[in-house]
Design a protein around this nucleic acid. Structure first.
Length: 474
RNA sequence: GGCGCGUUGGAGAAGCGGCUGAACUCACCAGCCUUUCACGCUGGCAUUCAGGGGUUCGAAUCCCCUACGCGUCACCA
């Protein structure tokens, strides 16, 4: 068995997508599990859409998730460079080989001509395709076109009726016919830059990639690539096409579905270990009943044969739940830091810590802290519903509120412990306890029957707000 | 439209011909506990595996057809 070498090959045309992140994760885990190499290669051959910012974002997101490559961009390796635009010579050579063997040829048709042909075919009710106009150009014809200043593309000569079999690790045997490809496709654009299908093949082969694990959207590209491998006389890697991640409406996850970039989740205060855990469960399932795994653990238990063929819907609920599992066990200091970006400016460290402590088990993601701010800020309180309001109508309530108000007024320091003691004193003096004691105060102060510890909330409110809110209930 | 892939509860899924009278998790619903609240705990939630045929003593599991969903058909990746 040769060494496992896998790669994640994003095109830097936007931030790292959730689906891309999962592909990267699966590749990474496979490499780790098998003690192989994980390579990151940048496919930046789309000059119009590729940007350095996107590349940066993708790398940052991978690192944030804890996915590190041991070969590839930035860190180099034995098959450098790992950015396709820096490998143009390599593709040129491969293209030369194909030209010489006659498997590829120059095509001088302009985009307008191709477009006109397409429309003509459509008008006749036929499938639009390239008809091979330049397939058999003579030397003179070529010279003529060159003289006209036309910049040719290079096309691969697609044979008729060749059976192309993909032995896919997740989908099994998938058979295509070369005839289904339709027409001779472009492998080198007129500006000399290779197209995706050509560049992947060259790189995957030259970089000795053993397993190509990628999204299912690439399955129908694979026959073209197979043809290329064949023409070049190269052995193919093993393929594994992982099913797509769908949005709630069951179509491929895209911007319409809300946050699709890893960086969005980072900004919303999700924890990387939670995202990783959630992502791995989309399309892969562990053997036992346990679902919570750290990256380290996944590196040991992951395997391709437990990858599902059917697409998975991205379920925000579950992501949040998983995030909560990781968040709830974090030290208070870490939670305080995590919620910090969602707090108004000027909060002291102590205040953040107290809030973190108060909300520790109420937050699913850090950004949730925003929902709790109204609980402790502002003099206004809205009673959540009628039933809640009625709890304030009990006979002992006015006296309770008055007594509590008096005690608070006298206090200098409003620490949670002191407030709790005050509440208990109220109870003792008035002969109420339990729900009859805490509930009216909670409702008077927050308007809700449910919520975080009332003594801590009150401490966070501070004297003025407590008094102001109590005043509303008199 | 051609080609390809898929279809187990609202979501993720297990299941690989009998031990499944379909695990487990999220969500949802109900209840319980608690000198507040939450966390939590307990229970409920597919008489059935898209539908229809077949093969078999026996099928969610194998075969065929239909339906539906998605993907893909660029000088984008």
């Amino acid at each position: 068995m040769t060494r496992i070498r896998v790669r994640f090959a994003p095109s830097p045309t936007g931030p790292l997508h959730i689906g891309g992140a999962r592909s990267a994760l699966f590749n990474y885990l496979l490499a780790k599990k098998e003690g192989g190499d994980f390579i990151v290669r940048i496919e930046d051959t789309d000059r119009d859409r590729s940007t350095p910012e996107s590349e940066e974002n993708i790398k940052q997101s991978l690192l944030w998730l804890g996915i590190r490559w041991n070969e590839g961009v930035d860190i180099g390796g034995p098959y450098a460079p790992y950015r396709q635009m820096e490998r143009l010579d390599t593709y040129r050579q491969a293209a030369q080989q194909l030209l010489q063997s006659g498997d590829a040829y120059y095509c001088y048709c302009s985009e307008e001509e191709i477009e006109a042909q397409r429309e003509e075919l459509i008008a006749k009710g036929e499938t639009p395709r390239y008809l091979g106009n330049c397939r058999n150009l003579t030397e003179e014809e070529r010279g003529q076109k060159e003289k006209e200043g036309r910049r040719p593309v290079i096309r691969l000569r697609v044979p008729d009726d060749v059976e192309l079999v993909i032995d896919d690790l997740v989908r099994g045997k998938v058979v295509f016919s070369s005839s289904e490809i339709g027409s001779d496709f472009v492998i080198v654009k007129s500006d000399g830059i290779p197209t995706y299908n050509f560049a992947v093949v060259v790189d995957d082969y030259l970089m000795k990639i053993s397993h190509v694990v990628r999204g299912e959207e690439h399955l129908s590209n694979t026959p073209r690539q197979l043809l290329l491998y064949k023409a070049l006389g190269w052995e193919t890697p093993v393929f594994a096409h992982v099913s797509l991640i769908l949005g709630e409406d069951r179509s491929k996850m895209s911007k319409r579905h809300g946050s699709v970039s890893v960086v969005n989740y980072q900004n919303e205060g999700y924890l990387p270990e939670a995202l990783v855990n959630f992502l791995v469960l989309l399309g892969w399932s562990p053997e036992g009943e346990r679902e919570l795994y750290t990256l380290d653990e996944l590196e040991k238990v992951f395997s391709l044969d437990r990858v599902s063929k059917s697409p998975a819907v991205f379920d925000m609920n579950k992501l949040r739940w998983i995030n909560a599992q990781y968040l709830h066990v974090l030290p208070t200091e870490t939670i305080a830091e995590g919620i910090s970006p969602f707090l108004p400016a000027g909060w002291s460290k102590e205040r953040k810590l107290l809030l973190a402590q108060t909300l520790a088990h109420h937050l699913e993601i850090f950004a949730d802290v925003r929902n709790y701010l109204s609980l402790i800020e502002g003099a206004d309180v809205a009673i959540e519903d009628e039933e809640t309001g009625q709890l304030l109508d009990q006979e002992h309530v006015p006296a309770l509120i008055a007594l509590f108000e008096a005690k608070i007024s006298e206090m200098e320091e409003l620490a949670p412990e002191a407030i709790k003691a005050a509440i208990k004193e109220c109870g003792k003096e008035l002969g109420v306890k339990g729900a009859g004691l805490f509930m009216p105060l909670r409702i008077a102060l927050t308007g809700n029957q449910h919520g975080p510890d009332i003594d801590k909330l009150a401490a966070l409110m501070g004297k003025d707000i407590i008094l102001a809110r109590l005043a509303l209930r008199k």
